[in-house]
């Protein structure tokens, strides 16, 4: 409840930022990217809430970006295209989720990594559709919403508010799930899958649902990104960064918490871009790596979900 209020308050403050910055395009772009990463980290956290640790969210981001770009270039309206990309990501994620039938824990994580690498490789090869290494350019810009002041919906400010809205939606979805039966099923399967199934809970449909929801949000971010940057390339949207960063950010911010992953994402990204980047231009990614290493070694409480889920022999 309290975190819900904090979220609303935070959203309100963030909504007032663009006018305060005088719509400075660079800072708006930086912040909207931070919000997209925060939404992806929240989506990653939603999946982790149900148990699986993913090393392959780039697959879903890329599916969303390519799905939306192709649909948009094919003549669909950008909004419809982003939605379609989201569905592609959800379907792809559910497909990856099928791996959970045979794989658990670290091996499921490796499986998601392999899927992401596979998709990236295929996107590079299948150039008739994806444009190969050069990617797809000329994606139309998002249309201006007629019923809102132009200054809020055009260009960088528009992207800013859309990314913020998407982040809000991702957090809202997670908050709803945590309070519902779905969240109870996710948490029970995460904590002790066998016990939960002995109580009549069938794991697979719930795991697939978690993958699909997480993939949906991640792919919507990908679709929005494609329409903001207006080009997609395999090495850009299937970049391993979209697999590594959400993991870093969510574990750093606190697994399974509502706001931790999003807050950590925004803080780490801004720290990295605004502080580390000017200081050590080539090395600024080191911050993420160090954050992840520190959290694994020194904050085992922040990794409560990681410490379980291993296989044990039960007497």
């Amino acid at each position: 409840m309290r975190s819900g209020l904090a979220a609303l308050l935070g959203m309100g403050v963030l909504a007032a930022v663009p006018p305060a910055l005088g719509f400075h395009p660079y800072y708006l772009f930086l912040l909207s990217t931070a919000f997209l990463l925060a939404a992806v980290a929240s989506a990653w956290n939603l999946l982790a809430y149900a148990g699986p640790i993913s090393f392959g969210h780039a697959a879903f981001f890329g599916l969303g970006a390519y799905g939306a770009a192709l649909a948009s270039l094919g003549g669909l309206s950008p909004w419809g295209a982003i939605a379609l990309g989201g569905l592609a990501g959800a379907a792809g994620a559910a497909g990856v989720g099928l791996l959970s039938i045979r794989l658990r824990g670290a091996y499921l994580a490796l499986g998601t990594l392999a899927c992401a690498e596979l998709l990236r490789g295929l996107a590079l090869i299948w150039s008739e559709v994806t444009g190969g290494g050069a990617g797809l350019a000329g994606i139309p810009a998002l249309p201006v919403l007629p019923w809102l002041p132009r200054v809020l919906t055009e260009g960088r400010a528009g992207a800013y508010y859309l990314a913020l809205a998407l982040l809000g939606a991702a957090l809202g979805l997670f908050a709803l799930i945590r309070r519902s039966r779905v969240g109870l099923a996710f948490a029970a399967l995460r904590e002790e899958e066998e016990r939960a199934s002995l109580l009549g809970l069938r794991p697979l449909p719930w795991t697939l649902l978690a993958f699909a929801l997480s993939g949906l949000v991640t792919a919507l971010c990908g679709g929005l990104y494609a329409h903001v940057v207006r080009v997609v390339e395999p090495d850009l949207v299937f970049s391993r960064h979209y697999s590594i960063l959400p993991l870093v950010m969510a574990t750093f911010g606190g697994l399974h918490t509502l706001l931790g992953p999003a807050a950590a994402a925004i803080a780490l990204y801004l720290l990295s871009e605004l502080v580390l980047h000017p200081l050590l231009p080539a090395l600024h990614q080191v911050g993420y790596a160090l954050a992840l290493i520190a959290v694994i070694l020194y904050l085992p409480g922040g990794l409560a979900g990681l410490r379980r889920g291993g296989r044990r022999a039960h007497p």
Binding site: I53, A106, V248, L290, I293, P300, L303, G310
Partner: peptide, 19 residues
């Protein structure tokens, strides 16, 4: 690395790989 070793080491070395 905390238990389960396989998963935590995977996450840790993912970070080291990035580093």
């Amino acid at each position: 690395t905390p238990e389960p070793k396989e998963l935590s080491s995977l996450v840790l070395t993912f970070g080291l790989s990035l580093l």
